[in-house]
């Protein structure tokens, strides 16, 4: 009798656990493992040809024109990451600090800062593309209205400003996320600690740098890591605002776009190459995994238990 009950229980657990496991195994684990395997083969369209060892990796890293494309996209990703570190996470911390004080209207401000986060990136991309329009976009119309005609320019049409314009749109879209994560971290700081600090010092600067910042370290770890992963996966905004080729002249090209273009081809080149695409995917994947681990470990060490 007990044995029979055990099998019944075992069957029940199996029934509960197998279907969800199967989904994750088939649609996440298997594709990711395959991505590594694909990179070692030569491909023609959707057909897998010979095993070529590390040749695909060699091509994307060292053979022109791939080498310059890879380096250019990588360089742009780095700019995006550091720019968003300031515009998104830095500003997010300041906004969180302001919201934390629960001044009149704080609830409304909190809802407002998170509103763009729930919008589709595609909507944000098109909205800002219209705003940046050289003749009829509100950005240039505002500048001309303020008498700053000299500053009005084709924001997305020139190499010097295109990437930064897209970064600004991204910061507008996502600044609410780090803001509310930091805010949640600040709200967890115990009142006694804050009272003790208030007795010690009047300086807001000391309070922020010595107390608040170290105590929200767990929030910072998560926000920094997510931003890093997000910045090196960046795709939708540059795809809509700069185009599949990272126009103008590759100035908005990033690894996500370059990978997609290499794997699935584009209208002008038409050529799709799953081997080179997979090699790029593996390199990006390993880079993200390595650096994200380093960031997490280094920042975790900084965290203190209250």
């Amino acid at each position: 009798m007990p044995k029979l009950r055990m099998t019944g229980r075992g069957l029940w657990i199996t029934f509960l656990i197998v279907p969800p496991l199967a989904f994750v195994a088939l649609f996440i684990v298997y594709p990711i493992i395959s991505a590594f395997a694909y990179a070692f083969f030569d491909w023609q369209g959707l057909k897998r040809l010979d095993f070529v060892g590390l040749e695909n990796f060699h091509t994307v890293l060292f053979v022109e024109p791939y080498r310059s494309w890879t380096l250019n996209a990588f360089k742009n990703n780095i700019i995006v990451f550091f720019a968003l570190m300031v515009l998104q996470n830095g500003l997010g911390f300041i906004l969180a600090y302001a919201l934390w004080r629960e001044l009149p209207g704080a609830r409304f401000h909190r809802i407002a800062v998170f509103l763009p986060v729930v919008l589709s990136t595609i909507i944000v991309a098109y909205l800002f593309k219209l705003f940046y329009h050289p003749l009829f976009g509100v950005v240039n119309i505002s500048l001309r209205g303020l008498g700053l005609d000299g500053l009005a320019q084709p924001w997305l049409g020139q190499s010097g400003t295109a990437l930064w314009s897209i970064i600004a749109a991204q910061a507008w879209h996502m600044v609410g996320f780090p803001t509310l994560v930091f805010l949640a971290g600040m709200q967890r700081i115990p009142g006694e600690i804050l009272d003790a600090v208030r007795m010690e010092t009047e300086s807001e600067w000391v309070k922020i740098t010595q107390i608040v910042w170290p105590l929200v370290a767990p929030s910072a770890t998560i926000v920094f890591t997510l931003l890093f992963v997000g910045a090196f996966n960046w795709f939708e905004l540059p795809y809509i605002m700069g185009g599949l080729d990272g126009s103008p002249f590759g100035s908005t090209d990033v690894l996500g776009l370059y990978f997609y273009r290499t794997a699935f081809g584009n209208v002008s080149a038409g050529q799709q190459d799953f081997g080179l695409g997979s090699a790029l995917a593996v390199l990006i994947f390993l880079f993200i995994a390595a650096i994200a681990t380093v960031i997490t470990v280094r920042l975790r060490a900084r965290e203190i238990q209250i």
Partner: peptide
């Protein structure tokens, strides 16, 4: 895991 990077095997699947 950023699943975007496994888009080629997913497409084949």
């Amino acid at each position: 895991l950023p699943l975007k990077l496994a888009i080629i095997p997913l497409f084949m699947l």
